[in-house]
Design a protein around this nucleic acid. Structure first.
Length: 548
RNA sequence: GGGCCUGUAGCUCAGUACGGUAGAGCGAUGGGCUCUUAACCCAUUGGCCAAGGGUUCAAAUCCCUUCAGGCCCGCCA
């Protein structure tokens, strides 16, 4: 996709949008809050965000709406969710009128939508939020319902074509796409074995009246189109919103973009029934959790909120926006340090302090960086605490304490940029990365990335020089030392005994953390309780002297 | 049955729209650094570009055919 001077893929999309010459540019995206909304949904959000930013860069204003499909019926309860027994009764009601099983929001829809929405500003996104249960009270949507009923035969023909239904004349096709929320039981569909929407029995467009039968409780109702709570079914609903909002562009997952799929049919309905040409389609592939697709209903999810606990928002934007929409992204939480470090590298390239590989489009880097930062790039490159470093030092917290971890980290981050210290903003960033890294270590770090001081030494030596060395170090730590003195003294001790320094360090790490390598030694030794440390060092000798 | 995506170094992937003879990061190995913040620097190691055929002076790139993996087409983005 990228090559010399071409820039980011979003440019191509934006060019097509501009070519449409819409009066107003409206970008849409939607999500059904049927359960926890996972990180894959952010792909659509970020694509829209990127489009909006690129439009702005070219001097075009645009509107970015996030439609929450809160009026859809709840069809099942996600496996990962524990709900009260009586929740079965809620199936078939609009998500917006199902109670929040956690009790903290006004409805089921609000609970899950809200968690997602609250993450959006953190991720550099600021869509207008539109709930469909509110949208459907608007006159424009009521009109859309009237339009659909007026042109029902034409609509049915389109539907038959896309769903490959046999009957040619449609004489037995009594389908209609208008669903009514039952005044008696509150359901919009029954969920017994399959989804059976509440249907209209009759309608009178002159009187603006209709009758319906509830498929769940059997209630027969009647009322004005303007008064009754109702919605259009899926593919027609999508088109209606396109037409009502005059949507210029809406990305969609590959499932909807299949030939003769929902998007194709939606566009035709939009054009033929509502008289609007419909949006530019931007198809995108899925973001999977390793090998597996995320499935809300099976509880296989990773949510934006979980991301924000362990990694910076820019890195998520980077993960998603650095990949062509039609390419599949395989995400694994274990790889977060790679992702953050890659983002940092790109940042350094943007600011010209890291070499850009040959054949790489500089414009692409520039575009991508601007799309990844939350608002605008800073004048100067911010000093960053490398995430991988953070994952290491944070594991020393039980020994060094939070304060020294923080000061060490700040010092290190500043030194990497050749600065005397961090600005308050950079300091906050470093602090944030430390807490994220700490959380990552707890939740996602693979075994080789973890270490800790073992309670019992897992190592002892019978080598004479090594034993002598350990004794020297035990004596060294008994004296007051600065870090650099101690570090040098350890080297000197090893040399004077004739022990290879790298071996000497390995021995110490083995005794302390059961590994060949570890964090810088002197600060670690000084941070430990002195008596404990001396005992530990000598234990590495004593246990063998018993054997000998 | 129909459609989409992917297959390039141990790993993650650039490079494919406009063909010019394979790159990056990570890893691994070796070395350096009065000697380790798993740092840094240097070097080395790495690939029949899934397979076959075609077009061409020239193919990872275009065309055709296979194979493998993933996914979608019943309101899951």
């Amino acid at each position: 996709m990228l090559s010399m001077g071409r820039g980011h893929w979003v440019r191509g999309i934006v060019e097509e949008i501009i070519k449409r010459d819409d009066e107003k540019i409206v970008i849409h995206t939607g999500k059904t809050p049927s359960g926890p909304i996972h990180i894959g949904a952010e792909r659509e959000q970020f694509i829209c965000s990127a489009i909006q930013r690129e439009l702005k860069r070219r001097g075009f204003e645009s509107t970015f709406n996030l439609i929450i499909d809160s009026y859809d019926p709840i069809k099942s309860i996600p496996a990962a969710l524990t709900v009260p027994e009586w929740f079965e009764e809620e199936l078939g009601k609009p998500l917006s009128s199902v109670p929040d099983p956690f009790g903290c929001h006004g409805s089921y829809a609000h609970h899950f939508a809200d968690e997602f929405i609250r993450c959006q500003p953190e991720l550099g996104l600021s869509p207008n939020i539109i709930y469909t249960h509110e949208l459907y009270t608007q006159p424009a949507m009521k009109d859309a319902i009237r339009t659909v009923l007026r042109r029902l035969d034409q609509l049915k023909a389109i539907r038959r074509k896309y769903l490959h239904l046999q009957e040619e004349d449609g004489s037995t096709d009594d389908w209609n796409p208008v669903m009514v929320v039952c005044e008696k039981c509150g359901r919009i569909a029954s969920m017994k074995k399959e989804v059976i929407p509440n249907r209209l029995d009759s309608w009178d467009l002159v009187k603006d009246e209709l009758t319906y039968t509830c498929s769940a409780c059997g209630h027969k109702g009647r009322g004005k189109i303007g008064d009754l709570p109702m919605k259009l079914s899926w593919r027609v609903d999508w088109s209606a919103k396109w037409a009502v909002f005059k949507v210029s562009c809406e990305p969609a997952g590959k499932d909807h973009c299949v030939k003769d799929g929902a998007y194709d049919m939606g566009l035709e309905v939009c054009k033929e029934i509502f008289g609007y040409r419909g949006p530019l389609r931007v198809p995108y592939e899925w973001l999977t959790l390793g090998e597996h697709a995320m499935k809300t209903h099976k509880g296989i999810t990773f949510t934006p909120m979980e991301w924000l606990k362990v990694a910076p928002p820019e890195a998520l934007r980077y993960l998603i926006l650095s990949v062509d929409p039609m390419r599949h992204i395989s995400f694994l939480p274990e790889r977060i340090p790679d992702i953050v470090d890659s983002f940092d590298r790109m940042e350094r390239q943007y600011y010209g302090i890291e070499r850009i590989p040959e054949n790489t489009d500089v414009e692409y880097i520039n575009d991508l960086y601007r799309l990844c930062v939350k608002s605008k790039p800073e004048e100067e490159i911010p000093a960053r605490l490398p995430y991988r470093f953070a994952t290491t030092i944070v594991q020393l917290e039980p020994l060094l304490g939070a304060e020294r971890i923080l000061s060490k980290s700040a010092e290190y981050a500043a030194r990497l940029r050749g600065k005397p210290g961090l600005t308050p903003k950079e300091f906050e960033d470093a602090k944030m990365r430390l807490s994220m890294a700490a959380q990552w270590v707890i939740q996602y770090a693979p075994p080789q990335a973890r270490f800790k001081i073992s309670d019992e030494p897992a190592f002892s030596t019978s080598d004479k020089k090594e034993r002598q060395f350990l004794e020297s170090v035990a004596q060294l730590v008994g004296k007051a030392q600065t870090e650099s003195e101690l570090q040098n003294e350890i080297f000197n001790a090893a040399r004077s005994i004739g022990l290879d320094p790298s071996r000497a360090f390995a021995v110490l790490y083995q005794i302390l953390i059961g590994s060949e390598k570890g964090p810088r030694l002197a600060p670690l030794l000084l941070a430990l309780d002195r008596d404990w440390l001396i005992k530990r060092l000598r234990s590495g000798v004593r246990s063998t002297s018993n054997e000998v």
